[in-house]
Design a protein around this nucleic acid. Sequence first.
DNA 1: TTGACTACCATAAATTCCCATGCTATCCCA
DNA 2: TGGGATAGCATGGGAATTTATGGTAGTCAA
Lengths: 149, 149
Amino acid sequence: MFLSTSHNKIDLKCRVSIPASFRVNLEKTNETLILFKSLQFKCIEGTTSSRMQTYINAIDELDALSDDAFLLRMMMADSFEIKFDINGRVVIPDILMNFAGLNNKAVFMGIGGSFYIWSPAEYENQYLKSQKILKEKGPPKLFIKKKIE
Amino acid sequence: MFLSTSHNKIDLKCRVSIPASFRVNLEKTNETLILFKSLQFKCIEGTTSSRMQTYINAIDELDALSDDAFLLRMMMADSFEIKFDINGRVVIPDILMNFAGLNNKAVFMGIGGSFYIWSPAEYENQYLKSQKILKEKGPPKLFIKKKIE
DNA sequence: TTGACTACCATAAATTCCCATGCTATCCCA
DNA sequence: TGGGATAGCATGGGAATTTATGGTAGTCAA
């Protein structure tokens, strides 16, 4: 489970500390870290090797010529298997730095099965957007249902 | 089940004792504690890891582009897996301290499957509000029905 | 031989762990 | 039934560990 949010610094070598709780989550299951371009947002998505494998398997299930299959393959193409240094830091590939508009700060946002890496500005946007939706539409249906039961 | 209310002190390190009865409830089922921003109130909500896992699983079931999925992911980002010290104390993350307006006192309020942590002032507000509704509208229908049966 | 990349070392700050203390509720026996 | 012993809980403090981050030396390829 990837949870919580934290703001870490990216140095001149594009190195950044992965939050300790995320690292523990990976080590616990002996998984490697995969980083790739988010399909929905201007951010990097990080996940476990095994979860990535399920995406790959999903492609085989799809119509090989479908748009979905096409998109998933493009996603794979910009995926990177990432190694940690002894202090729990990783180097973010240039392609991903540019894609997410990252510079010298990264916001790590755990979302359960994976996590996002945002630029501070983009993170702020998304956070405000969520507050707006919450105000206008209220909490998710699922959440309300579960609570009453 | 989390029941009853208690007032505990938050020290300078943002540590606070979780009421013993809540702790027993977690230990009994070997669950870890998750704290997150309430979606409805200006307070922290506490729940079990397994309950949080059901929300996470739900995200995969939802339309990934929907508002509900978006809000649930944001909820994960504002959730923290919390460890106890040997005395049953936890550290409340800064983000949650600020969100709930907590300072040096916390009111724990069990509500069944989860519990709330309020600032004393906010708790007082909510309590008065509930008393007012009770006076004007009487007890909830659900409650009356249960009692008669 | 220069530039990029990797592996490792160093350090300050933050966090965690554990021991100690005081309080309160409970128990037990005279 | 009263009063002291006991156990569990809430809280304070400080030592030990971990984390985030800066830096350097070694390595490989162009």
